[in-house]
Amino acid sequence: MSTSKLILTQEVTGLGSPGDVVEVKGGYARNYLIPSGFAMTWTRGAEAQVASLRAARQAREAASIEEAQAQKQRLESQPLRLTVRTGQAGRLFGSVSPADVAQAVESAGLGTIDRRSVEFPSAIRSTGTYQATVRLREDVSATLTVEVVAAR
């Protein structure tokens, strides 16, 4: 099996933070990380880019930790209500996506979050109350209560 040496340009759950140099399987790099813009191939010239990514991350880190803690408080303070179309017995037409949750957070005035930072333990396919994890930073995660209700 071939491995590829990459430089992460964005945070990837379970892999690393921007600026980290990682080795992953070739297919994962070729088919997902590089096309999605999460990483770039490692070269000697890219080392300078890694240094600038790390410096920028450290500069943002000091100010953003307080901001992330404040957003965590806002997200955990109240449940997020999603109104969706349903069929019989409260079953959804499809499922609730991370993009739906990110849009609902923004429209509820709780700030903006990246849809890629929203994770569900399992797919939400019916009405009810669910928990979602929102990664605000590498070391700050909020547990968001999502109430899925039928549209009337």
Rank of each mutant, 00 (worst) to 15 (best):
Ile124Ala: 09
Glu147Met: 07
Leu144Thr: 04
Arg135Thr: 01
Tyr32Cys: 03
Gly87Phe: 05
Val149Arg: 12
Arg30Cys: 01
Leu53Thr: 00
Ala89Asn: 14
Gln58Cys: 06
Gly16Asp: 10
Ser107Ala: 11
Arg135Tyr: 07
Leu82Gly: 06
Phe120Asn: 10
Leu33Ser: 02
Val149Gln: 11
Ala55Asn: 09
Arg30Lys: 05
Asp100Trp: 06
Leu15Val: 15
Ala108Met: 12
Thr127Met: 00
Gly37Pro: 04
Ile113Phe: 04
Gly14Val: 04
Asp139Phe: 10
Glu67Gly: 09
Thr127Val: 15
Gln58Phe: 05
Glu11Phe: 10
Gly94Lys: 00
Asp20Gly: 07
Leu75His: 06
Gln69Met: 09
Ser117Leu: 06
Glu119Met: 15
Gly87Leu: 05
Thr145Glu: 15
Met40Ile: 12
Glu106Asp: 14
Gly19Pro: 00
Val118Arg: 08
Gly111Ala: 02
Thr43Leu: 07
Ala104Ser: 13
Tyr28Cys: 06
Gly26Tyr: 13
Tyr130Leu: 02
Thr13Cys: 01
Arg125Lys: 15
Val118Lys: 04
Gly14Met: 01
Val118Leu: 06
Ser2Gln: 14
Gln103Cys: 01
Ser126Leu: 04
Leu75Asp: 04
Leu15Glu: 05
Asp139Tyr: 02
Gly111Lys: 07
Val148Leu: 04
Ser4Glu: 08
Gly109His: 13
Gln49Tyr: 05
Ala142His: 04
Val101Gly: 01
Ser141Gln: 07
Asp20Ser: 10
Val118Ile: 13
Asp139Arg: 10
Ala89Trp: 04
Ser64Phe: 02
Ala51Gly: 05
Leu8Asn: 02
Ala99Lys: 13
Val134Ser: 08
Asp100Phe: 10
Ser2Asp: 09
Ser36Tyr: 03
Ala132Asp: 07
Glu147His: 11
Tyr28Pro: 03
Arg30Ser: 09
Ser95Cys: 04
Arg116Cys: 12
Arg116Asp: 14
Ala108Gln: 02
Val50Gly: 02
Thr43Glu: 03
Arg60Ile: 00
Val134Ala: 11
Gly94His: 12
Ser126Arg: 13
Ala68Ile: 01
Arg85Trp: 08
Glu138Arg: 14
Ser17Tyr: 06
Asp139Lys: 13
Ala142Asn: 02
Ile124Pro: 06
Ala99Met: 05
Gly94Glu: 08
Arg57Trp: 07
Leu80Cys: 06
Thr9Val: 13
Ile113Met: 11
Ala62Phe: 05
Gln131Glu: 15
Ala51Asp: 01
Asp139Thr: 03
Arg152Trp: 03
Glu147Asn: 15
Ser97Ile: 00
Glu119His: 15
Lys72Gln: 11
Arg152His: 10
Glu47Met: 11
Thr13Glu: 11
Ala70Ser: 14
Thr133Phe: 12
Asn31Thr: 02
Ser95Met: 00
Gly27Tyr: 12
Ala70His: 14
Thr133Asn: 13
Thr13Gly: 10
Thr145Gly: 02
Leu15Cys: 03
Thr41Asn: 02
Glu61Asn: 08
Ala150Ser: 15
Ala102Glu: 11
Arg60Asn: 14
Thr112Trp: 08
Val101Pro: 08
Thr112Ile: 13
Val105Ser: 08
Gln73Arg: 15
Arg91Asn: 11
Gly87Ala: 07
Ser141Tyr: 09
Arg60Lys: 12
Ala29Thr: 04
Gly109Arg: 10
Gln103Arg: 12
Ala99Glu: 14
Ser117His: 07
Gln88Thr: 10
Leu144Cys: 00
Thr127Gln: 08
Val22Arg: 09
Ser141Arg: 06
Arg137Ser: 13
Leu15Arg: 05
Ala123Cys: 00
